[in-house]
Computed example of a mutant assay.
Amino acid sequence: MSLINPLNSAQSVGGQTQASKTSVAPAQQTNSSAAQAATTQSTADSTTGNPFIDSIRLPEESSIPEPNSQELTQEDFFSLLSQQLSMQDPFKPVDNDQMISQMASFSTVDGIKNLNDEIVNLNSVMTSSQALQASGLVGQKVLIPSDTGHISAEDPSINGIISTPEAIDTITVRIEDDKGQLVKSYTIDGSAGGNVEVSWDGLGTNGEPVASGNYSIKASGRVDGTSEELPVSTYAHVTSVSLGTASTGAILNLRGVGGIKLGDVLAVAESGSGNKPVVDAEP
């Protein structure tokens, strides 16, 4: 029988353990190196080495969900109503009238919102339709509540209407330029009263045609023994029509004068009819 030296056995076992530890350590180092290499490879795959190209790369998609709308919908209302009904006190149930009132209130609010959207769409349609109808006025002359007219090669004269409260024997007409300087003065008969036609041929005091531009027709007469300024409306040539907005409606663009709302037009006249009104606007 042979005896085993415990010391030698322990040393042997210890030696094996030490060897095992020694052999495990390189394995752990190998796994760590492999992980580091994989990380480096992943980083290398995500970059090109060119700073400019890397800077313009598209960012990775974010996993953060988009925020939900905070507006309550009809589905949310019925969900809350279902929760209310399911959690009500069986001894004190929700009154039917109260539940119907809540449903009616929500339906009313939802209906008003839909009605507002429809009104906005209707205003857009009506504005477009009005502009389309007003386009028929292009090339015509309209009477506007302004004493200013435009003189040009296309329109060498200015015609208008003087409104009188009563019959006036003599009406004094003054033509002024855009600086308020008197260009010409003459008188017309106002004994007919009412709307008296006035016309200026575009000639100055010396009989020479004036320069193109805007000129005003001023009128005055004696009313009840007192000299008063009389309102004057002039005809203007419509060159184009602008769509405008729902509040303004169609806008008529007048030659040399500017834009005016379609609703402000007093009358419409044919260009070759001597500015005789063919359509009177409602007051």
Score class of each variant (00 low, 15 high):
250 A>M: 01
276 K>W: 11
248 T>E: 14
255 R>M: 11
252 L>T: 01
259 G>I: 01
265 V>Q: 03
254 L>P: 00
272 G>Y: 14
247 S>H: 12
246 A>C: 10
266 L>P: 03
261 K>M: 09
258 G>P: 02
249 G>W: 04
245 T>W: 08
269 A>E: 08
258 G>F: 03
260 I>D: 00
275 N>Y: 09
276 K>Q: 14
245 T>Q: 06
247 S>L: 15
271 S>Q: 15
268 V>P: 07
262 L>K: 08
270 E>M: 13
247 S>R: 14
247 S>V: 12
274 G>W: 10
275 N>Q: 11
245 T>H: 07
261 K>P: 06
263 G>N: 11
250 A>C: 04
244 G>I: 01
245 T>V: 06
251 I>Y: 03
276 K>I: 13
253 N>A: 05
266 L>M: 14
244 G>Y: 04
270 E>N: 14
264 D>Q: 11
257 V>N: 09
270 E>H: 14
254 L>E: 01
260 I>Y: 01
264 D>F: 03
257 V>S: 05
268 V>I: 15
247 S>Y: 11
251 I>D: 06
262 L>H: 08
253 N>L: 00
245 T>M: 07
256 G>E: 05
272 G>M: 14
247 S>T: 15
276 K>L: 12
247 S>Q: 15
256 G>I: 03
272 G>N: 15
268 V>G: 05
261 K>Y: 11
267 A>R: 05
250 A>H: 02
268 V>N: 07
250 A>Y: 02
273 S>A: 12
253 N>K: 03
249 G>E: 07
252 L>W: 00
271 S>F: 12
